[in-house]
Design a protein around this nucleic acid. Structure first.
Lengths: 145, 145
DNA sequence: GTAGGGCTTCCCATCATGGGAAGGTCAAGG
DNA sequence: CCTTGACCTTCCCATGATGGGAAGCCCTAC
């Protein structure tokens, strides 16, 4: 199987397969006489593993660890679980962060007329509730000094 | 005010201030005789605006648009709201994506013993529910004969 | 006069991915 | 036999936003 077919079969682009090889995530494939990379079912299997791990948000570094554990028949499932649990915590943290943004923004957008007038609570928030500088004019304050 | 003080006052690192200037997000500051960048309250204000926008997850490109709207007194709040609404949708999409990952992973982690034994549903999922290949170099190489 | 801290520019690294050029290889069809 | 087109190879560059660090200039304090 050439790299194109392996890409097709695994869902990992040929570009990425070469990259994974380059960074040592996967081992260099065999080469045919014409110097083409040659893959078998095992390699495709590994690529699918990587693809799946990536789709679950694992970094390539985490993926590498998982790959190593997968191929270590004497692994302890606790090691795998630790990687997963850490990743879950990380995802949850990022989700919470973004939810905070959504909450703030939703409130601001709700308060914004969204019409033809210039008044906009969104900009007021970004500006720290004080008026814009650059055009250099109108020092009207919306809040008590 | 030198760049260090402006960084301090705005919460944007000096490194980033220079970068923002370089990519045209902010205009080149004035320079003092010794070629140091010089900032005033207005510039710090702009930097704080950027900082706040970034903290709400807006990209630098979106931030640039918001900045332009902020400084355009004849803007329509609808334009601002459009940027915000789009960003909210984007955040929600990413959150949903990550929540999917968390859901899957939590289930798998829950099912994983996390003990000293090698059996692990997490790896089984990643492997597509089939056993691992390539435990070692003892694997058949498909080199051209 | 020297030590330090701040400033300047320039280059590099990150993370994962894609784009594209320049050139080799192969199979099909004229 | 030769062309065409679809592969493959390596190499370099770009992304987005940020940080790290080197080499060298400037200013102030001692």
């Amino acid at each position: 199987m050439n790299i194109g077919q392996a890409a097709e079969a695994s869902g990992v682009s040929a570009k990425m397969i070469r990259y994974y090889e380059q960074i040592g995530l996967i081992r260099p494939s065999a080469r045919s006489d014409n110097n083409y990379r040659v893959y078998g079912e095992d390699e495709v299997h590994v690529l699918r593993f990587i693809k799946r791990a990536r789709s679950l948000g694992f970094s390539l570094e985490e993926t590498e660890r998982l790959l190593a554990l997968w191929q270590d028949r004497s692994r302890e499932s606790a090691s795998v679980k630790a990687v997963a649990v850490q990743h879950i915590a990380d995802l949850k943290r990022r989700i919470a962060e973004m939810e905070g943004m959504v909450k703030t923004l939703s409130h601001l957008a709700h308060c914004c007329g969204g019409d033809g007038r210039p008044d906009c609570p969104i900009l007021e928030d970004l500006a720290g509730h004080v008026p814009p500088p650059i055009p250099a004019a109108s020092r009207s304050r919306r809040r008590a000094p």
